[in-house]
Amino acid sequence: MSNTILQNLQIVFREVFNNTTLIITPLSSAKDIPLWDSLMHITLIASIESKFKISFSFNEVMQFNNVGDIIQVIDQRLKR
């Protein structure tokens, strides 16, 4: 399940950052991807919510320190 989520997240990241060669891993964070600032973060969250058809709470969004955290929350939400 996590691998599928990562693959789908990769699609989202590439679209949001307009970079077709971008590779993300569970450890990827704002430190690793240039232009991942507050504005892009909002865009990213909105795109992830649209892709996975879920809506994150603020508490969940606060936990997003890296891609792995995002995967974990998505995984939990999809299992509900």
Binding site: S29, A30, S38, H41, M62, F64, N65
Partner: peptide, 11 residues
């Protein structure tokens, strides 16, 4: 400074 600063503000 780490992470997305704007979300740390309400925290």
């Amino acid at each position: 400074d780490e992470g997305i600063k704007v979300f740390k503000i309400p925290e």
